[in-house]
Design a protein around this nucleic acid. Structure first.
Lengths: 222, 222
DNA sequence: CGCTTAACTAGTCAATTGACTAGAAATTGG
DNA sequence: CCAATTTCTAGTCAATTGACTAGTTAAGCG
């Protein structure tokens, strides 16, 4: 048997090696699941297994770190401004927001990693109980009410029914990504077409529902 | 140290023991994930670990068996008849169907088990690419077209846009269960209220969309 | 009650796993 | 080019794991 050629070693500065481990571990765990052995991970990274433990105290710490890296800086504050800009038609605002938002999360790595975390790590709920942040509900609700000629939240607090209506809207969009990357089924419309369609559907149905709620709940006049 | 009391042994006929293992393994794996050790499972079942291997050749075989047990017999043929019964208003038909359907799947065990399978077992896609069976799309689409006064599928085949519209509708309902059991967030409306709301929302918006599609795609007259 | 048979368990094995230690190799500054 | 420093690897350890074997216990039938 021929002697194995010695591994060509690449020495990187600490910061770079750490960044590489983090970057390349995400797709690894996303596809293999968190129970995949560290030896396989090391092979995937092109390093020896023991090196992992010089950068991270344990496998769990590494995974926690990956988790935090992924949620950090994903939310863009300006999206909220986009949504509130009444110079632009609401339909366009919503489309623009959902395109930007889903840009960041509709990927195999992101979707799988987060579902794995939700199934496996109890803390995932606390940090990010739903990828569509709750604050966005308030803004969209506010804009929709304005569009529909209904009072704002001070005069008429958001009911469970209204909140759930927004949940349903956003979940229909989010589920496009679930179908694509969790179920592995390619939807038959492009993401952009789908978002356009869903926004139109929402803007057609929601005002009717909202007015019915206002009537049923005796909302004050606008 | 006091001597451990010997395990009180319970001898069951084969069929019963197998049924018990299957029944009680589902909540175990649903909560612990498929990588949980067989020793823990045996403890949960109240039997010795080695007994598992007299009923199932391997852990994977057991999990595959659980998977099949869960999908088998879940779909009720009569649901399709309910949906097609034009004596009943479409709204009522849809509500009745989604109540019955979600009755079977909105549970911690079912939701978690299936998401675990989707993340972990490639075959899960083939058997059940989406819990809302594709055939139901055709039926609902058909009934909605009839209600809206548009031609049937023979005269005007279902477009990608129409299909996606139905996907979105059903996913908004399914996602209620995801929020509850995967994210662990209790929605603020009951399931029944939510279904009623979503059906109303759908019936308000979908006909408008559908008519727009018919126009854009030059559908023949009904 | 005793015999037979099938259900069940204790205990074991090899493989895999996360984690660690000691030392080799590569980089850098002088 | 050499010494100091840091990156990296080989090899190891104990614990855990899926799977198995041999033997024990309980049930059922005469």
């Amino acid at each position: 048997m021929a002697k194995k050629t010695p591994t060509p070693r690449k020495r990187l500065p600490q910061a770079e090696r750490e960044a590489q481990i983090i970057r390349d571990s995400i797709p690894f765990f996303a596809s293999r699941g968190f129970s995949a052995p560290t030896r396989d991970l090391a092979e995937h990274l092109g390093i020896h297994q023991s090196l992992l433990y010089q950068y991270f105290p344990s496998k769990d710490d590494l995974i926690d770190r990956l988790y935090r890296e992924m949620i950090l800086g994903r939310w863009k504050r300006e999206w909220e401004d986009w949504l509130r800009d009444r110079e632009v038609p609401l339909k366009d605002r919503l489309e623009r927001f959902f395109r930007a938002f889903t840009d960041g999360i509709f990927s195999y790595d992101y979707m799988r990693f987060f579902f794995l975390a939700w199934m496996d790590r109890p803390y995932a709920r606390d940090h990010y109980s739903n990828p569509v942040q709750a604050r966005i509900f308030r803004i969209i609700s506010s804009e929709l009410r304005h569009e529909t000629g209904l009072p704002d939240h001070d005069a008429w607090p958001m009911s469970a029914a209204e909140l759930e209506m927004h949940h349903a809207f956003q979940s229909s969009i989010f589920y496009y990504g679930v179908r694509q990357f969790i179920y592995g089924v390619t939807p038959r419309m492009t993401r952009d077409e789908f978002i356009t369609q869903q926004v139109e559907l929402f803007l057609a149905g929601a005002p009717i529902q909202l007015r019915a709620m206002a009537k049923a709940q005796n909302a004050p006049a606008s």
